[in-house]
Design a protein around this nucleic acid. Sequence first.
DNA 1: TTGCCTGCAAATAGTTTGCACACCT
DNA 2: AGGTGTGCAAACTATTTGCAGGCAA
Lengths: 171, 171
Amino acid sequence: MNHRVQAFRELLAARGYRVTPQRVGIYEYLVTTDEHPSAEEIYRALQDRYPTMSPATVYKTLDLLVELGLVGELAFGGEVTRYDGQPDLHLNMVCLQCRRILDLPVEGLERVAQVAREKAGFQVLRERHEVYGICPSCQRVNRADPAADDQAHHEAEPSRPLEEHRPQEVG
Amino acid sequence: MNHRVQAFRELLAARGYRVTPQRVGIYEYLVTTDEHPSAEEIYRALQDRYPTMSPATVYKTLDLLVELGLVGELAFGGEVTRYDGQPDLHLNMVCLQCRRILDLPVEGLERVAQVAREKAGFQVLRERHEVYGICPSCQRVNRADPAADDQAHHEAEPSRPLEEHRPQEVG
DNA sequence: TTGCCTGCAAATAGTTTGCACACCT
DNA sequence: AGGTGTGCAAACTATTTGCAGGCAA
């Protein structure tokens, strides 16, 4: 078993939470994957191992994990909330076209929370750093086929683009 | 009229969007306030000036403003999406207790997007930096009345706390 | 005059909640 | 044994969407 999963079991116990198979399973899935799955994706992914687990349990567990500071919560307007099992402080790069989320370690990122603490006296418990734009892969596709800017179609296309608007080009 | 509102009208026209009273009103409200209002708050706040304006229009306009990069979108899991009319790059400090959102300019914050561009080749269009925790005001209240940690009651309490969980204290 | 934008109302869907039973401790 | 956590289904509600008429250009 992953050492992080073991630490999770101990943390639950220490905090007075019960160590249930569902909680362990969800946590294990999150820290194992490099993806940023939604609640529903987690639910479906664990169907095999926990056939009786309900979506409600997934939501409740995710809330708990976020509160414990073990996973990051990535909510966007109009988008499904996604979860990030990597606890290290990093930048999330959200592609508005293919909807993928890429991680990038950024040196000195911890200085931001430090400023909040020292300059504003804010007690920081969690943080979140995101940039939105076009990932390198989509940039290549767009250059190859300029019409793709509007319709979006890529190698591994998760689904529809994050945003629709665009009545006409700059006049 | 605010010069930013004037610039907004011109931007709309240049992009081929129509300059409607609703759009201008919503934009003006957002850049005028220091708050981070939700769609519904904007809707209610503009009832007097635009009695016939519908919530749908507010949502559509907000989407447009975000797409144009004129306002920031602050979505949290389970929380209403809020909007930030201040276009300058800053840190949002979200208090988990009183739900207020405070702004803080942080020197060198623009370096983050720069790293994403240079190190990862990501084309940055928007960005978002947030820390979650306890604001100085709530910290004071909690010190004065330690029991307040659970129930949350403050000077100007917007409403219920952002998070509920907490079965029992650390054992 | 053209067709984008608004307003209305219904639909959508992610998430939450209440309750009874199960199982972790 | 005790009571937290789970599962189920219904409820909730923020947000989206379709359509007809209004108004910006």
